[in-house]
Nucleic acid binder design. Structure first.
Length: 965
RNA sequence: GCCGGAGUGGCGGAAUUGGCAGACGCGCAGGAUUCAGGAUCCUGUGGGGGUUACACCUCGUGUGGGUUCAAGUCCCUCCUCCGGUACCA
């Protein structure tokens, strides 16, 4: 390269020069009255908790690149930012520091805003919103009242998850892996009067409309689907001896004849009523234990199932059998009806429970594969049994305990007869699988009812003597190793042992039984959801107060809209408290009768705040409405929403629910808030953990990966960045050392944005090096450029010039596609690197074409500018332009430059690459001509020798494949 | 257990519609520059074979099989890792 002495890349000066520029010029201010060419880009707004690390940065950097790109393409792009500012951490942090949460929050917001500036990330700050601002939460309260009006907000006494650490209740969705989402401690059950949003009314629509969200990641849709957890089945009513209705939900009504006992959740309302006096003490003790221990113990699915018999019986409506009613904590009070009919033969949990407590297990569904297996104990037959069976056409396996044979489905009866005929006195055998029966010398007893179960056990006990312990036929069978995997199945299959339904084919069984139940008024078709109503009450201070007043005469009264907002009391913040603890807050007058009344003292879950914020950005300053319908109908659904996958369920499900509710209320004209969703991967880094001293900062770690305090070897787990694990990288350090442009470039370059990536110092250095090279390259070229209006004329370029010219335009096109269509920033960056490499090589020539240099340098700077905006501004001026790259617009592609005169086409022989031919573009595009060119090429002829070409496949512009001999 | 996603050089990754595997970057090696280190620049860099040198051959995208003129890409089997969820009847 020419030995120009240039100033080095002084990123600090460059970044300082442009930091305020974009805001001052108002490039990203948008008028939401605009109707043409509009694009609503939205990042999930952050919770202002201290500072943002480089992992958070990834999200916003992606957004900023897109915003700048769309701006250059001439869109009216809306990219607002706000703060999810209410919530527990603010309160807890404030308590620790003895200051008001508002103060703490505002300080963090100011800091984060500064971070965005340092990153070169620009928002329309005129639209900034903060959920803790009364001008905002007034409308959160309005939303509550709208839902209330429609009956979607209601209060009920319920047992809820209470986090003792955070001193508040949690929504179902906020209990993660059995612990509190925020602090991880185990929630305790607590019964309280609480407000709920009736999201279950929308379960079907939330589920069905997922199909419309074509541009959402499949994984997120699947997670929501699982969370909603729709199950179709039936509710079946059993009568207890006390004449009470015991209603169960089941997805398998076709297994009703196999229901040999019932299980209620320990909390079930009927437990007290039906428990017989002699069982009261035992039942009460079990229930207390279960309720207290529930969430900690219930975590383990591998735990032995426990339960207690209530002494009560119910009648199976299918066969009028009297079956015992148990309670057990494996049945959840919160799902279905809190009670089940246990079908141990076809439900794994019921099977385990029945085996443990000696309850009968009756198979009523045939195996789908129709396999059967018979086991004949060695002592039951003669030693030559295997030969006899084989002579009859049954392959037999001889084990140390006896003989195993697997007859075909239609051969089972013959096998049973054979075995019966071979039995010695006192011997017995059994067959399981598609048919269950016990074989005795004088009888074959099908295992098809409680009565036969008893008979089988009695006979076996008699024959076996004192060593016999089993309580049920199935228990006997579980002791036979050969039957492992044969005794239980949950297949859909033909019904058996089910009265007149026996023989009903599996695919018809459920409907047939349900229909019969409905006719006899014994049950009905039913759908159950895993999804529960959304608990929104929180017993804390830092949130939007619930706008409801309780009046002794009028009852529950909503605060009139004109009286909103119900403001948080302005108290000096001194410690842990909810609104209930603040003297005077609850005292008010009834809006209806004017008498003395009491305010609700709970605040709303912060997910309510964030469930509608995307609407407020359109008209953030409107004092009369939450939003203007005409405007939101135009701007929404959000064109592109980007955020962390950790919100796949909570925030996104709640937002979808609120949008649908507002649609039904006539406030918006769309049913889904986010048209396209992208969830970016997390940024990870090795963490250091001492078994004794906990997490350590990387710089604390002593030589040889040891703890500085105790010298123990450290664990090095690999985690997404998190302050608690001390593996975060503070962007201020990176920006100070190499600049924001380098951080931005590296963040995009290190990997595909939807995947988790590891932050690496070497990667940062590489990106920094590249920007230095670009700086030097552009500086070198600057004095040699043609006037800034010039364009290269391909007719005057030599081969190298033409190659570069094509590279320039191919790059522009690739970067456009990668950013706009593919969300593939890493490949956009590498394309830019390739352009820079080619340009550098060409620029070494003394006779470089000034017009081409101009075209190449300008376009390099322009396509780089959304990614590295500081450098983009600086270099754009350096090469003689006046305005910003944002004003220059996205460069136009010269279509002619995308083609080529000649193309190199690979030629394969028998699937192996053997030669390359160079042909004109015209020939390459024509299969016939291409094939001919390949066959006539000397190189190909030489490779082929004198073998015969059987077949030639020519794919235009791609390759030629020859099949020989 | 169930539901997703992923497995490609020493490393991050690329290959967009079944068509030249390893773009781009890091690291490493050799060289230039330098008193020296760093920085910078140049060259090389999947494994094996082969050549004085080129050429060239061969293997190769977690495993095993299949479809095809052609497979990282499609189908089946299995393994590993990551994420979500977990007694949901």
């Amino acid at each position: 390269m020419t030995a120009h002495v240039n100033e080095p890349y002084d990123f600090k000066a460059v970044e300082a020069r442009w930091r305020e520029h974009w805001n001052e010029k108002g490039y990203f201010r948008v008028d939401t009255k605009a109707r043409d060419n509009t694009f609503y880009y939205l990042n999930m707004f952050p919770y202002p908790s201290g500072y943002l690390h480089v992992g958070h940065g990834r999200n916003y950097i992606i957004g900023d690149v897109l915003t700048r790109f769309y701006r250059m393409r001439g869109y009216n792009i809306l990219n607002p930012m706000g703060w999810d500012a209410f919530g527990l951490p603010a309160e807890n942090a404030a308590i620790d520091r003895g200051i008001h949460p508002r103060e703490w929050t505002e300080k963090n917001i100011a800091y984060a805003k500064g971070q965005f500036g340092a990153w070169g990330i620009v928002y329309d700050w005129d639209r900034e919103i903060s959920t803790c601002d009364p001008d905002y939460y007034r409308w959160t309260q309005w939303l509550f009242l709208e839902l209330y009006k429609k009956g979607l907000a209601y209060r009920k006494r319920a047992t809820v998850n209470y986090c003792p650490q955070c001193k508040t209740v949690l929504a179902n969705e906020q209990v993660v892996g059995g612990g509190c989402e925020r602090c991880g401690s185990a929630p305790e059950p607590k019964t309280l009067e609480q407000w709920f949003f009736k999201i279950t009314d929308y379960a079907d629509r939330l589920l069905d409309d997922l199909a419309k969200l074509e541009n959402w990641p499949e994984s997120v849709k699947k997670m929501q689907e699982n969370w909603i957890g729709r199950s179709e089945g039936a509710e079946i009513t059993f009568k207890t001896e006390t004449r009470d209705d015991l209603v169960v939900f089941t997805t398998r009504p076709d297994t009703l004849w196999g229901a040999t006992f019932m299980v209620l959740a320990p909390e079930h309302a009927l437990v007290d009523k039906i428990t017989t006096p002699d069982k009261k003490a035992e039942v009460a003790a079990y229930r207390d234990r279960a309720i207290r221990a529930s969430d900690i113990d219930r975590l383990s699915t591998e735990r032995e199932k426990t339960g207690v018999f209530t002494g009560a019986y119910a009648v199976n409506p299918a066969n009028n059998e009297k079956i015992p009613v148990w309670i057990a904590d494996y049945v959840l009070a919160t799902y279905g009806t809190g009670a089940i009919m246990a079908v141990p033969a076809h439900d794994e949990r019921d099977f385990a429970f029945a085996i443990r407590y000696g309850l009968p297990i009756l198979p009523v569904i045939e195996r789908a594969d129709r396999r059967a297996r018979a086991f004949v104990p060695a002592a039951a037959v003669g030693a030559d049994f295997d030969k006899v069976a084989r002579d009859d056409g049954f392959p037999v396996e001889k084990t140390s305990h006896g003989f195993v044979l697997d007859p075909n489905w239609d051969d089972v009866n013959r096998a049973v007869r054979l075995i019966q005929g071979e039995l010695k006195a006192g011997g017995w055998a059994s067959v399981v699988g598609t048919r269950f029966a016990f074989i005795f010398q004088d009888a074959v007893i099908a295992h098809d009812s409680v009565a036969t179960d008893r008979e089988i056990v009695a006979r076996c006990a008699l024959l076996t003597g004192a060593s016999f312990h089993a309580r049920t036929a199935m228990e006997i069978l579980t002791q036979i190793p050969a039957y492992e995997g044969f005794l239980f199945h949950s297949d859909i299959g033909t019904m058996q042992h089910s009265g007149r339904f026996s023989g009903t084919r599996g695919h018809l069984a459920k409907d047939a039984v349900t229909e019969w139940l409905e006719k006899g008024q014994k049950g009905k078709k039913a759908i159950t959801y895993r999804l529960h109503d959304w608990l929104i009450s929180r017993q804390r201070y830092w949130g939007a107060p619930i706008p409801i007043v309780y009046c002794p005469t009028c009852g529950e009264v909503p605060v009139p809209e004109k009286d909103l907002p119900v403001k948080l009391p302005d108290v000096a913040f001194i410690g842990k408290m909810g609104l209930a603890d603040i003297p005077g807050y609850a005292d008010t007058t009834c809006p209806t009768c004017g008498g003395k009344a009491r305010r609700d003292t709970d605040t709303m879950d912060t997910f309510v705040d964030s469930s509608w914020y995307y609407l407020r950005f359109i008209n953030p300053h409107d004092t009369r409405r939450a939003f203007v319908r005409d405007d939101v109908d135009h701007w929404l659904p959000v064109n592109q929403y980007v955020g962390g996958v950790e919100h796949a369920i909570l925030h996104l499900l709640y937002s979808r629910f609120v949008t649908k509710a507002l649609y039904d209320l006539g406030h918006v004209g769309f049913e889904e808030p986010f048209a396209r969703l992208f969830t970016q991967g997390m940024v990870c880094l090795t963490a250091y953990k001492c078994p004794e001293h906990g997490w350590l900062y990387p710089k604390e770690v002593a030589e040889g990966n040891r703890c500085p305090h105790c010298g123990k070897a450290l664990e090095n787990p690999y985690f997404s960045m998190s302050k608690s694990k001390k593996n975060v990288v503070d962007p201020s350090e990176i920006i100070d050392r190499v600049g924001a442009d380098t951080e931005r470039l590296y963040t995009l370059f290190m990997g595909p944005p939807d995947r988790d990536i590891e932050w690496s110092e070497e990667g940062i250095r590489g990106s920094f090096r590249f920007l230095n090279r670009v700086w030097t390259l552009v500086s070198d070229c600057a004095p040699r450029l043609a006037p800034r209006t010039a364009a290269a004329d391909p007719a005057t370029l030599d081969a190298e010039g033409l190659a570069l010219w094509r590279r320039v335009h191919r790059t522009v096109r690739k970067v456009s596609e990668d950013i706009q269509d593919r969300f593939s920033f890493n490949t956009a960056v590498s394309a830019i690197m390739e352009l820079a490499n080619d340009l550098a090589k060409y620029a070494e020539r003394k006779d470089a074409d000034p017009d081409l240099l101009r075209e190449a340098v300008d376009r390099l700077v322009l396509v780089l500018s959304p990614i590295c905006p500081f450098l983009g501004e600086e270099l754009w001026r350096k090469v003689g332009h006046d305005g910003s790259p944002l004003e220059a617009g996205w460069p136009r592609v010269v279509e002619q430059a995308l083609g080529a005169d000649t193309v190199e086409i690979p030629v394969q022989v028998n699937g192996k690459l053997r030669a390359r031919i160079t042909v004109s573009a015209e020939i390459a595009a024509d299969a016939k001509a291409l094939e001919k060119a390949a066959l006539e090429s000397d190189d190909v002829k030489a490779k082929l020798g004198d073998v015969k070409v059987l077949k030639a496949i020519a794919v235009p512009n791609k390759m030629v494949s020859l099949v020989v001999r």
